[in-house]
Design a protein around this nucleic acid. Structure first.
Length: 897
RNA sequence: GCGCGGGUAGGGAAGUGGUCAAACCCGCCAGACUCAAGAUCUGGUCGCUUAGUGCGUUCGGCGGUUCGAAUCCGCCCCCGCGCACCA
């Protein structure tokens, strides 16, 4: 029977399901392991990125299971979202119907891959049983003051027809539509107070020891903490103050102007009724016209306009002009900056353009600066000059002293600002969780009482009406106020779908619980031990989920601070050097690969080609070769299944080959186990290939028991990678259990025999050489073959070396001592050779056991006698003449008689 | 500009001080099997050699540490990703 994945794969998938071997419950008998992949948006089609994600997760889950862990490995669907709604518009299908159809397709494909999910725990976020808890959390957060409504300038994607969170704006464009520029609109929206956790989210990144540095850095940048000084400047001739934030208060004596953001609330007051009013208003209008992209474009020339007003520097009472400039961002700091052109490049550029004074006040320790001919700002720290009582101080010291000076005067203090802003959670879309609030003309926004949850999403809405479809369902919208009982209207905004995915990993722990969002089982399973997904979620989802966990902790639902212990961000699957995409036409459909080669081949290829974190280049030849390899494995077991035995192995009865095979098996177990621990699946597979190649090479020389022993371990180790073929071969070897839940092989240190493994390599060489000699001499039935081995003097040098190394466990010291021995001066060249040889072949034994050469030679003799059926003599090459003298130990000169 | 990750044989990809001219896979070459092709198996695949586990030159570039460097240190070049007027 040839290898037919199309037959065996569905067979074992059915068997596994029938036996329910992947279903889990909490138990005290085993340690737990929660292995989680980022659940997919159900687009209907599994792509290679998914396959890679799940192949990695499944391999790990299966390995952990075999290691004896109680493994929670669930799957679900992030089912709310815009594509479903677009389908409704384009194809006239209801989003619900569309979504469930896609889920079914997707699940079918996942099952064909043989992933070992506990399907009983499946989650779908668009069902009321799930999103009810979104609403419940929303209300709890509201009680805690974490939810609020506010009018704000928001990001509006004209294509999505909804607002976006800051995290969903990429380079001024929509995260879903990279061709669509995000507009700014001023609207009242629902926010989640993620900023309340900014410091903790930042600080706890340090605790995430097993997260990629890259992701942590991205989050750090996103949170964007900066520590500085905040102080007030009096506006001259007005009863107004400008609040300034700076990280470089040490440069304050160099301030020659102040710049406000166009959006700064004070601007209007400053210019009202003055001759500057018109100019400033025009400038602001222009700035508002510009998109975020234009405004933050690279090398954009800085522009601004004078307000006609002046502010007073509290340090020296100097009067400086106030400008409005759009390079100052309204949302960061105080929206106003003190401009020090000598020490800030942006201020420098601005000053050059508007011909403002550049006055250096911080100098390099041994350098000069001249404001009249500086070419760029000096931004390093240095020594202060012309700074009143602070002159002579170093920047660092000055920052502290100047800040406390402000504090004493009551006009400033140390301040911390973050870039991160609150999470805009409301969406003007239909296919999402309804926000559980009611808008009463008398009472304002009133939360829906808990017992009335869920606020179900009505199915009957008009998608073509424009605006939010929810608003078209009168029955849904018209309601009564829970507070006053009067007529009221329901909130028609829904929640950002990232809300759904911020806590789904808790839900997997008790997916059927209907009294609370998750029960005690979460205490058992959480945190997630290994989370696997794409780098694209480095900020959005991973930050929200971290925030959510902390918020849940603060409403008393969990003790956890962080949800994900380890994070693995898998690399992309590329084709022709680019990410697979429809527009490039370089998409490989996993379904085609399964049909042609089977799921095991797909899994094998994807795990074998590179480390999980790295990008892989799709290669048809590579897939082909992986398939050929599985064939080879299958055929090898098939050929040998009837002869293998599984009896106890008596070491003493084994020959060199069997000892070597046995040892190689054990070193493979050791190596593969180590690689699994380090998630180096590609390397683990390379080792397994290696072992199989060796078995093939000596196929008919291996003892039946040794072969059985080795094959059993080999097949077991294949189970996490290519589970179907492993299961098939396991049964072919006449085992009755499931290899999928067998114990992971332990290595038998007793069987490890490095010398034998090495000797086997030599044996092959010797055999080859001998065959060649036989061919040359045309002797068909030799009576005696003599192998000449190393000359005595070399052996002596060798033993001397060994002695030196034995005496000095420190190899370097040994080496140095050696170089001082008299022998070296006489035979430098030879010694170098020996050292090379030593290092090459005995490196591992240095300071430990020294190889027993004589024993190996005996074994050699036996093997060779078997091979050539004649008398074998191993002689010292000293006794021979000519070429053999140059031979190294074990590498023979050969004499056939 | 800042941060992170990389640069290893024709291609992919291991390798973080000595069994390294460098695992494993692809590609290519030769041999076995075959009528032939494919599949499979065996060997080879930096150069020179071939008597050899020999010599020479290699792991982005240049220097350094060491008896010994792809591996450690310094500087430089190139590529990918992320952030980017954040005061």
């Amino acid at each position: 029977m040839p290898y037919e994945p199309q037959k065996i794969e569905p067979k074992w998938q059915k068997e596994w399901e029938k036996a329910g071997i992947f279903k889990v419950r909490p138990t005290k008998d085993k340690p737990k392991f929660y292995c989680l992949e980022m659940f997919p948006y159900p687009s209907g089609k599994l792509h290679m990125g998914h396959v890679r994600n799940y192949a990695i997760g499944d391999c790990l889950a299966r390995y952990k299971r075999m290691q004896g862990y109680n493994v929670l490995y669930p799957m679900g669907y992030d089912a709310f979202g815009l594509p479903a709604e677009n389908a409704a518009l384009e194809k006239g299908v209801h989003p619900k119907e569309w979504t469930f159809g896609r889920i079914e397709e997707m699940r079918k494909q996942q099952k064909r891959m043989g992933f070992s999910y506990d399907w009983d725990r499946e989650i779908i976020t668009c069902v009321p049983e799930y999103y009810k808890w979104n609403q419940w959390f929303f209300l709890k957060f509201y009680e805690k003051g974490l939810v609020y409504r506010a009018k704000a300038t928001v990001n509006w994607c004209p294509k999505c027809n909804t607002v976006l969170a800051n995290e969903q704006v990429v380079n001024g464009r929509c995260w879903r539509h990279s061709d669509t520029i995000v507009e700014k609109r001023s609207l009242e929206q629902w926010f989640l107070r993620i900023t309340a956790y900014a410091e903790e989210l930042l600080k706890d990144l340090e605790k995430l020891k097993y997260w990629p540095e890259r992701v942590k850095t991205m989050q750090k940048n996103w949170i964007g903490k900066s520590i500085g000084t905040e102080f007030e400047m009096q506006v001259k001739d007005m009863d107004e103050k400008i609040k300034i934030f700076t990280t470089r208060i040490d440069t304050v004596y160099g301030m020659t102007f102040v710049v406000l953001a166009p959006e700064h609330p004070l601007v209007e007051k400053l210019v009202k009724g003055t001759e500057y009013e018109e100019d400033v208003k025009r400038y602001i209008a222009e700035a508002k016209q510009k998109t975020e992209i234009e405004r933050s474009a690279e090398d954009k020339e800085k522009t601004g306009v004078f307000t006609g007003r002046y502010a007073i520097n509290p340090f020296n009472n100097e009067v400086v002009p106030i400008f409005v400039g759009d390079f100052v961002l309204p949302h960061y700091g105080t929206g106003a900056v003190m401009a020090v052109p000598a020490h800030d490049q942006r201020d420098f550029d601005f000053a050059k353009k508007y011909d403002l004074q550049i006055r250096p006040v911080v100098f390099p320790e041994d350098g000069e600066l001249d404001g009249n001919n500086m070419e760029k700002a000096y931004e390093e720290y240095g020594i202060l000059r012309n700074s009143g009582e602070f002159s002579g101080l170093h920047s660092k010291e000055a920052i502290e002293k100047m800040t406390s000076w402000l504090e004493k005067k009551g006009i400033g203090k140390k301040a911390v600002y973050y870039k991160i802003r609150d999470w805009l959670i409301s969406r003007q879309r239909y296919w999402g969780t309804p926000i559980p609030f009611i808008k009463c003309p008398k009472c304002g926004f009133v939360p829906v009482p808990e017992k009335e949850l869920p606020v179900e999403l009505p199915e009957n809405v008009d998608f073509k009406a424009g605006g939010n479809p929810l608003a078209t369902n009168k029955e849904f919208v018209d309601t009564t106020c829970p507070k006053c009982g009067g007529k009221a209207k329901r909130e028609t905004d829904t929640m950002d779908t990232f809300f759904d995915s911020s806590w789904y990993f808790f839900r997997y722990c008790s997916p059927k619980e209907d009294k609370i969002p998750f029960n005690k089982e979460a205490d058992y399973w959480m945190p997630v031990d290994q989370y696997i997904g794409g780098i694209e979620h480095a900020i959005l989802h991973l930050l929200y989920a971290r925030f959510f966990t902390k918020a849940l902790r603060d409403i008393g639902l969990t003790n956890l601070n962080e949800p994900f212990e380890r994070l693995l961000t898998q690399g992309m699957v590329l084709k022709d050097g680019a990410k697979m995409s429809k527009s490039l036409g370089n998409v490989v459909d996993p379904e085609d690969i399964i049909n042609k080669y089977g799921a095991d081949t797909a899994r094998f290829f994807i795990l074998f080609t590179a480390l999980p974190e790295k990008d892989i280049e799709w290669s048809d030849e590579g897939v082909e070769s992986c398939h050929r390899f599985l064939n080879k494995l299958y055929n090898f077991v098939e050929r040998n299944k009837d002869r293998v035995k599984f009896e106890l192995i008596k070491k003493s009865k084994l020959g060199l080959i069997d000892k070597a095979i046995l040892s190689k098996t054990e070193t493979t177990v050791k190596g593969v186990s180590e690689d699994m621990e380090n998630y180096r699946f590609n390397f683990a597979l390379a080792k397994l290939l290696d072992l199989l190649n060796l078995l093939c090479k000596f196929e008919d020389k291996i003892n039946d028991n040794v072969l059985g022993y080795s094959l059993k371990k080999l097949v077991t180790m294949f189970a996490p990678f290519t589970p179907h073929i492993a299961e098939e071969l396991w049964h072919m070897l006449s085992f009755k259990s499931f290899v999928s839940i067998e114990s992971w092989p332990k290595q038998e240190p007793d069987y490890i025999n490095k010398e034998a493994e090495q000797a086997l390599d030599y044996l092959e060489e010797v055999r080859k050489d001998t065959l060649e000699v036989l061919k040359l001499t045309k002797i068909k039935e030799p009576k005696k073959i003599t192998y000449y081995v190393a000359p005595e003097w070399k052996k002596k040098a060798l033993s001397k070396l060994l002695k030196i190394f034995k005496e000095r466990p420190d190899f370097n010291a040994g080496m140095k001592a050696l170089l001082k021995t008299p022998e070296l001066t006489e035979h430098r060249k030879e010694f170098e050779q020996i050292v090379k040889y030593m290092v090459k072949h005995f490196g591992e034994y240095l300071g430990k056991e020294i190889i027993n050469e004589a024993k190996i030679l005996e074994e050699f003799k036996k093997e060779l006698e078997k091979e050539f059926g004649c008398n074998i003599v191993i002689a010292s090459a000293d006794k021979a003449t000519g070429r053999a003298t140059r031979a190294m130990p074990l590498k023979p000169g050969i004499l056939v008689e």
